[in-house]
Design a protein around this nucleic acid. Structure first.
Lengths: 346, 346
DNA sequence: CTATATACTTGAAACGTTTAAAAATCTCCC
DNA sequence: GGGAGATTTTTAAACGTTTCAAGTATATAG
């Protein structure tokens, strides 16, 4: 194990000089810098982060907690955050809560004791008491992403979910649909609640009735969406179009439709929030509402580093980013002849 | 900032006792333990990882470097590694090299100075000199995953790539194909080279000629696969089936076929390595060779923690895991009437 | 009652850096 | 040659833990 002392000895200087050449090279004379650098190289010295963090009271680590690493949205977010953080000289400690509040809290605890310099959090659920206190007590800057929290005064960067859902629903309405199903996320998280709200607004704006029977609340996962779709389609009067609140749910829905022998967009039109790399390899190519994922990541990191450096203080605000409608092939006009499915036989 | 001293003072004990109750509770009497725990709670004390690492000479961090976080294979790997590592009490420092050897090396440097306790590496390229020396010089345990290295004596857990490719190619042959294209990964990494080898072997085993003109080497990314597919299909005698060396390439291929107006599996059959959650939402559902991704992750972590604990020493070996053929809809018998595409008109 | 073993507790020395302040060296001018 | 000022280097004190050796109290045996 080679320490700064070994380097100092080999170069014939004090440890302070070594430290200086590493951290602030122009403070040391050309000659010594030369010698020190050479010593560092021959010894293959790397400063020990733990010691440095201890002394500097900062770790150079950013914590990133995502709700589901399997979801391409979060994957892209991770990619963006990692890239930008790295540019800022930070490494990222990735945590995956798998949509489980308990795991999320555990991760939060770990990050707290790792003394990360800041946390980017895509939270999994409503503001539970323990998490809230965890967040408010620890003095490490936190910025929320994708899913917001109210009341803690944290910075957040999220999609304008209401508008996005409005956009999606409206698109369906414009194609002539009047019975539009919604595969909603859990309304306990803002992405769930706001998208539901946007859907309702769009309906109302077009003088369409909001029918609770046409919305199914499910987790943001595929299987539940599958089941919900089946239920929806077995209604006496099934919807002619369905809006899925995120990408995973869209996939569950597509699979269900396919298993039910329903054709998209012929039998039922489909739209969803979250564009993703493969949306256009599906048959039909999926019409989606795209989120500016990379921007979200960038903004989150920026906000966070601003906080860390002290350039940003006071209570945070929520930053809304705009969505974009990507029209492909999964939305068509409703079939006038649409009939309910036969009742389940098994 | 609350330190162990504050806790000690409040509880009226020495810091050593606090440390003991945290790390080895049964060493301290019930009474004191009680008092200390209460103090910890009221002060909301969390030990500082940096200080602990410094003293214990271990950080509780595992480094994980993946080649492409956007690839569902790696996503699943990350998920598995994170889960298991967390069970073992480790947090994971995620790095994404984006298939760029330079970034990979940079990450390796960072991990080295973070003094992670171990590294799981899905390397990006061949054993470059600097990376090799980086790996061999630092005394932190490394296990390779997905892509192996020879010569450094590292533990590695990889797919039996030769066999997997053999399996895929054979499946196509059994369906009656004789002109089988290959979208190969870079042969500079083992996953590229071995899959190519397996393809060749399967051909030879069935007395089919290996035609270099039918294999296109590309990165493991989508766009290059797209371009390669277009080239392949514009050959005077295009293949009637194509084997893509990984999931991303399969997607690029599907997109290309669709853009070329070719139908799968009617016009061309398709198979690929890497099963992924959505392979069966594609139309047609993709026939694939599935990797036991989670097992790979588990095994890698296990191997690593064994090394860390000293339970495993000496030069490592490569562990091969077996693949599984998942038959869906993308492979059919070749069209006897297959004709070359018309030459490019634009 | 003493000696000895046992069970807890604690003082103090690490761990490897950074950094303020002190010391040393250099520069330049009178 | 001396000294003010600027520049460079070094000394030494942190940072917050863990952990060993040493200490104290308590029980057990003789």
């Amino acid at each position: 194990m080679v320490t700064i002392r070994d380097v100092a000895k080999l170069a014939g200087v004090s440890v302070a000089t070594v430290s200086n050449t590493v951290n602030d090279p122009q403070r040391v004379s050309d000659e010594l810098r030369e010698r020190v650098l050479k010593a560092i190289n021959t010894l293959n010295y790397a400063p020990r982060a733990a010691a440095r963090s201890l002394r500097k009271q900062s770790s150079g680590l950013l914590g990133l907690i995502v709700a589901d690493i399997t979801n391409p949205f979060f994957t892209e977010l991770v990619q963006a955050v990692e890239a930008i953080a790295s540019q800022h000289g930070y490494s990222v400690l990735l945590c995956n809560s798998d949509e489980d509040p308990v795991r999320e809290e555990k991760h939060l605890q770990v990050l707290r004791s790792q003394w990360v310099d800041g946390i980017i959090l895509a939270t999994t659920g409503e503001a539970s008491l323990s998490r809230t206190s965890l967040l408010s007590q620890s003095r490490v800057p936190v910025v929320l992403v994708d899913r917001a929290f109210d009341g803690l005064g944290l910075d957040a960067v999220v999609l304008n979910n209401r508008l996005a859902a409005h956009q999606a629903t409206q698109h369906l309405i414009r194609r002539g649909h009047t019975r539009i199903g919604l595969l909603s996320g859990p309304t306990s998280v803002t992405t769930g609640a706001d998208r539901l709200a946007g859907y309702r607004e769009a309906l109302l704006a077009s003088q369409l009735r909001f029918e609770p029977g046409l919305v199914r609340e499910a987790g943001f996962r595929e299987q539940q969406a599958y089941d919900a779709t089946v239920e929806l389609m077995r209604l006496p009067q099934p919807p002619t179009a369905v809006f899925a609140a995120n990408n995973l749910m869209a996939i569950g829905m597509m699979r269900a439709l396919s298993d039910l022998g329903l054709r998209c967009p012929d039998d039922v039109s489909v739209i969803s929030i979250d564009d993703f790399a493969w949306a256009n390899v599906f048959r039909p190519k999926l019409t989606t509402i795209a989120q500016p994922v990379r921007e979200m990541g960038e903004m989150a990191v920026q906000l966070l580093t601003d906080r860390i450096s002290g350039g940003r203080t006071g209570t945070g605000k929520t930053h809304f980013l705009e969505s974009r409608l990507v029209i492909r092939e999964s939305c068509a006009a409703p079939l006038d002849t649409a009939q309910p499915l036969p009742a389940q036989s098994s």
